[in-house]
Design a protein around this nucleic acid. Structure first.
Lengths: 228, 228
DNA sequence: CGACCATTTGATATGGATCAAGCGATGTGG
DNA sequence: CCACATCGCTTGATCCATATCAAATGGTCG
């Protein structure tokens, strides 16, 4: 949680100020992305990498949204995470990717060679520290995901909405880039249950749905209470 | 997967050979545990650390079994992991513990100051590398756990049994240190469902239950197939 | 032997899945 | 510019896997 906020702040900060007058490099990995990263565009639903491919690169979202996922033999899909602008992804594990990654909307990402980062980390401990920090943050995220998956449908949906809310600082409205199917596969539910639950939350006056993709969180406290 | 095997092999290796004639320190963190770690005993059900406590130490299981868990406000408990001899735990996140840890049986662990390890990592990159590797391994474990939680009861139980089997090299029988309640809380099921599922697998001749805690895996292939 | 705790087994209830239909927005061709 | 196909979403009816409630069994320790 803390880490994510920090990373996002940094990237946002870098975006706001002139890119030349950098401070005394407090986040060398972030800097490495900005200095060495190659910008790549992906269209809606394009694959960024596939499960079991060697994890050669790290990625940072510039614009758009990315989903990582895994498909079981019988076709069930589980979404591992959604990555928004500022988020770094692709370092789930050591050698090969555990999940596949796709662009949800048209997306631009910065790409950097993992080997370049590793080499940097070997010389500069602060890079190694940040790598560790990012991995630990992914771990925390996965652990929170586990806690989400043992809850009721209402609690899962409420949790998801709050998670999304946390990522758009200072607003009480979220514009979802992903479909109901994506949400369902993230929460381990069906689209029907997600839809019904949202309708129910609307009836409870906890949220409002100006459009199906835009959600106004009328009563975040009520959602937080549902979230156990 | 690879990492865990490595860690276990190393610790087992260290146990088998005379502790003085160490090879050229290929696993400095493991060595640090053996050299600097303080041995601590915990009795059955004793708390090792609590959720939200500052994560001051790292732990390595010498004997016994440990569970990490989180309890929701309404009392539902989710077990995050079981740690067996040779496993290192306690580094789930950066600052504070995300989970609590308890001894399942009488347990002996080696304890080492996290700050000592961090200091070591700053000087010796191979320590940082191993820390990263262990964290990445925990992440993979958590991700597999997520995949388990979206499956049917049969698939979860089969997955759990195979997971346990993988940790007792070269045998087709496991002696479970944990109760049905622990298993249920790990798999997001009830004890009744776990019990019924085991009975069903026994009827299918996939397993045998000489005693309730001892499970013979008659047909691991069948279980692996269930595991999707 | 008797008390206690873990586990199994049985009967019933229920939350969410599944199957199915309707609706609204977006886009396309006539 | 409108009829119509398409796609994503919602709503309704029914079903089923697992939870819940309840009781029986078995193993362990005083």
């Amino acid at each position: 949680m803390l880490m994510q906020t920090t990373v996002q702040n940094v990237s946002h900060g870098a975006g706001r100020r002139a890119p030349i007058e950098l401070p005394i490099a407090p986040h060398p990995l972030t800097d490495a992305f900005d200095l060495m990263g190659a910008s790549m565009p992906f269209t809606r639903n394009a694959e960024i990498y596939g499960e079991k491919e060697p994890a050669e690169y790290l990625y940072k979202v510039i614009s758009g949204t990315v989903r990582t996922y895994k498909v079981l033999t019988d076709g069930r899909r589980q979404i591992g995470a959604f990555y928004l602008p500022g988020d770094i992804f692709g370092f789930e594990t050591d050698a090969d990717h555990a999940f596949s990654a796709e662009a949800i909307t048209n997306t631009k990402v910065l790409v950097i060679k993992r080997s370049a980062v590793t080499a940097l980390a070997a010389r500069d401990y602060s890079v190694a520290e940040q790598l560790l920090s990012l991995t630990a943050h992914e771990l925390t995220r996965a652990q929170n995901h586990i806690m989400l998956l043992i809850k009721t449908a209402q609690e899962r949906v409420a949790g998801f909405l709050l998670e999304m809310l946390d990522r758009v600082q200072g607003r009480n409205e979220v514009d979802l880039p992903m479909s109901r199917q994506d949400i369902a596969d993230y929460l381990g539910l069906t689209i029907e249950t997600v839809s019904r639950t949202l309708t129910h939350l609307e009836h409870c006056a906890a949220i409002a749905l100006p459009t199906s993709r835009r959600i106004l969180l009328r009563d975040p406290a009520a959602l937080r209470q549902l979230n156990s």
